[in-house]
Simulated assay, not measured.
Amino acid sequence: MIISPIEFFRTLPKKICPECGETMKEQAESYLMECDRCLSKKTE
């Protein structure tokens, strides 16, 4: 059975930052792997 695109995206797991383990807020056009806090630590 083919699942609808809406159901597919609804059932995806939350994105988790590999650096700190925090659940990230998804953004439509973001391919970032780390959360904002970890990214800001890398640019300092």
Rank of each mutant, 00 (worst) to 15 (best):
S40C: 03
I3M: 15
K14Q: 14
M24H: 06
P18H: 07
E19D: 14
R10I: 03
E34F: 04
R10H: 09
F8M: 05
L12N: 04
K14F: 13
K14E: 14
L32A: 11
K25L: 09
E22D: 06
I6G: 07
F8N: 04
M33R: 04
M1N: 07
Y31R: 08
E7C: 06
E7Q: 10
L12M: 09
R10T: 10
K14T: 14
T11G: 03
P13T: 13
E26T: 05
T23E: 13
E22I: 15
T23R: 08
I2Y: 10
K14N: 14
M24F: 06
C38R: 00
T43D: 02
S30T: 10
S30C: 10
P5R: 14
T23D: 05
Y31T: 09
D36N: 03
P5W: 12
S4V: 03
E7M: 07
I3D: 13
R37L: 03
E44P: 04
Q27D: 07
S4K: 07
K42H: 14
K25R: 11
M24N: 00
C20Y: 05
T11A: 02
E29M: 01
I16L: 10
K15T: 12
R37T: 05
L32H: 11
S4Y: 12
E34D: 05
E34Q: 10
E19R: 11
C17I: 11
M24V: 05
F9V: 02
K41S: 07
S30V: 02
I2F: 13
K41G: 00
I2L: 06
E29N: 09
T11C: 02
L32V: 06
E29I: 10
E19S: 13
E44K: 15
S30H: 01
E44C: 01
T11Q: 09
I3Y: 15
I16F: 13
C38Y: 11
K41W: 06
S40Q: 12
L12T: 05
M24W: 01
G21F: 11
S30D: 03
E7G: 02
C35Q: 03
E29H: 01
I3F: 15
C17W: 08
E44Y: 04
F9D: 01
P13G: 08
C20A: 08
C35R: 09
S4I: 06
P5V: 03
C38W: 04
E29T: 03
D36I: 12
R10N: 01
P5M: 14
T11I: 00
K41H: 06
S30Q: 04
E7H: 08
L39A: 09
G21S: 10
D36A: 04
K15D: 03
Q27A: 02
M1Y: 07
C35A: 07
T43N: 02
G21P: 07
Q27E: 04
G21R: 06
E44L: 13
T23H: 07
L39I: 15
P18V: 07
Y31K: 10
K14L: 14
D36Q: 10
K15E: 05
I6W: 11
P18A: 02
M33I: 08
Y31S: 08
I3G: 09
I3L: 15
K42I: 11
C38A: 05
F8S: 10
T11K: 07
T43E: 08
S30L: 05
Y31D: 12
D36V: 03
Q27F: 10
D36S: 09
G21A: 07
M1G: 09
I3N: 13
